[in-house]
Write a protein that binds this DNA or RNA. Structure first.
Lengths: 339, 339
DNA sequence: CTGAAAGCGCTTACAG
DNA sequence: CTGAAAGCGCTTACAG
């Protein structure tokens, strides 16, 4: 403990500069014999470079700040885990913050990250607070938005094809013979879920379902919200036969509400979710859902940061990754008792 | 951007020492008028202290390293989120690492954390690799083990009452009139789940269920594992009427297997899980489970670190937090269609 | 109460 | 190929 570069230099009978050169493989060459001595001294002393000192001097901390709404939510948990793994594989550590969808907290984390001299930022948010955006716009390090982006950012953006997914889910349900598909959405049409709802609307329009017959039920983005929202739909005079839940959380709550009402999925009501979180493979019945490529998004985000560090001054650009239909029982594709 | 302490000092017409004193409220007093000038200069320049420089000089980085097995798992996700929140409330940032249950990776993160001069460590692991333990034992900063601890560590330890919970779950099922309770466990009896299984064994012993009638099915700690494991139990000649799943993940998989077999929970098979993850409130039927106080554990962990920093040289001690029975439908307590 | 100066552990021109 | 030295932005004895 407490072994410094100077200790290594002393033992290897050379200067701290040379020790630094061998540790970092540069920027100057080192004679093979000298390098050998240094390596040996490092091993003998069990020397490990102090990343804080390195960060101060070289202005590269090797850490990425990751802002997420709430990693207790399965979708953000998967995304967060994937981002952390991708960062580690790229030799970076992540410092994470859960904003809890709170703008003040979001801003507080952003400042804390920046004060800690993170080298880059990955921002996952369902909605952006103006203040957080200001902090980001003037940040001295590259940022990439994942899952959702503010209107005209200059930063790189990695999105899932939410609109396409909404259309895919809805169309799939219509293809099962349903004449209409209701949607379980969030409190408003902002963010990624807004795009999913837009895709739903587009699919209905394409199939000629008139405006006034497009049923939308709103709630918070939680299982409890989906539960309450579906319940309302069930009490609706014209109970829908098919429902598109704009997130898996909503879908899981909806599944529960249907069972509670003594009805069956997919026989009485067919259901499709969105996100492709792991638990959907094991709900009863298993949930058909739109798979969001969380791992790919994570890798893209880290790659975007890498590009920015590499000096490509326009790291920006919007990447929209394809989603996929994961066919399981809740839509009517499989017998409800099989997985 | 790039405003330093020296800039502030210049503008406030004082020394960097004084600026530091006002920022940190000490360790020397500052005249009110001077303080005012400094505060004003800070505001005018938009100065923000560089935490990296501070960390190097003061040897306090303000960041905590958090090692977790896998935050894509709902239980660890909840725990991780709670730890992050508790740390932030205590003015600390967390750097997190997912070991993926891999000892090499666990060790790599620990070293990376230490190299980054974290001020403390929170280690959540279902099993400890010898190398990780070595790294921890010689770490120059306090660590606290959460969820599971190595045999005779000197560090603080925060556990849930796993043994008591296993007994509680099993007893509850027996109280419902079942004569025996099978257990869905992990690949071996190590770690927290080992204690849960021990509690199950103890409960059965207390009620006189003989050794040879105690059925245990093993699998990986995943939903798929629980699914396969329960499937095996269903094919068993003496199919159990009650099952204790040692984690909620196993329970969710088991629930799915029972539905798939065309049987009903709790009528044909009663089931109790363990962990109290959020999704269990919305499974079909809803899952009775043993609630683990993740938030309380998180706060205890941060408090343990605080105690160590405060200089209480023996931060150690084992804290065992009580678990609770969350009664829902799967055990037979509620009608299966209600929540 | 205030300031000049050393120093945390590195990296990096610069000179040789 | 190697080394002496400056300096990253702070905090903290130390002297006044």
């Amino acid at each position: 403990m407490g072994v410094t570069l100077a200790d290594v230099a002393r033992r290897a009978q050379t200067s701290t500069a040379v020790v630094s050169y061998v540790i970092n493989n540069g920027p100057r060459p080192v004679a093979a014999a000298t390098r050998e001595r240094v390596l040996q001294a490092i091993a003998e002393l069990g020397y490990r470079p102090d990343r804080v000192a390195r960060a101060l001097r070289a202005k590269r901390s090797g850490v990425i700040g990751v802002l997420l709404p709430d990693t207790a939510n399965p979708f953000f948990a998967s995304l967060g885990q994937a981002i952390e793994a991708a960062a580690f594989d790229a030799g970076r550590l992540v410092v994470v913050g859960n904003s809890g969808f709170d703008p003040d907290r979001e801003e507080a984390y952003l400042h804390a990250f920046l004060d800690s001299r993170v080298e880059g930022l990955v921002v996952v948010s369902a909605r952006h607070s103006p203040r957080a955006l200001d902090a980001l716009a003037s940040a001295p390090v590259p940022a990439v938005y994942v899952h959702h982006a503010p209107p005209d950012t200059l930063s790189a953006v990695v999105l899932a094809d939410n609109d396409g997914g909404g259309r895919l889910a809805t169309t799939h349900l219509l293809d099962h013979g349903h004449e209409n598909v209701a949607v379980l959405a969030g409190p408003d049409d902002a963010g990624p879920v807004g795009a999913r709802v837009a895709g739903w609307r587009r699919a209905l329009a394409e199939r000629g379902v008139p405006e006034h017959r497009r049923v939308r039920s709103r709630s918070a983005f939680t299982r409890a919200g989906g539960h309450a929202s579906m319940r309302r739909l069930l009490e609706h005079k014209a109970r829908p036969t098919a429902v598109f839940a704009a997130t898996d959380e909503l879908a899981v709550g909806a599944l529960h509400a249907v069972a509670e009402a003594g009805l069956r999925v997919p026989d009485d009501i067919a259901l499709v979710g969105f996100d492709g979180v792991p638990e959907t493979a094991f709900t009863n019945p298993s949930l058909t859902t739109i798979g969001v490529p969380a791992e790919r998004m994570a890798r893209s985000a880290i790659a975007g940061l890498d590009r920015a560090w590499q000096g490509h001054e326009r790291p920006g650009g919007e990447e929209i990754l394809p989603v996929s239909l994961i066919q399981r029982a809740s839509c009517g594709c499989e017998s409800p008792t099989s997985r």
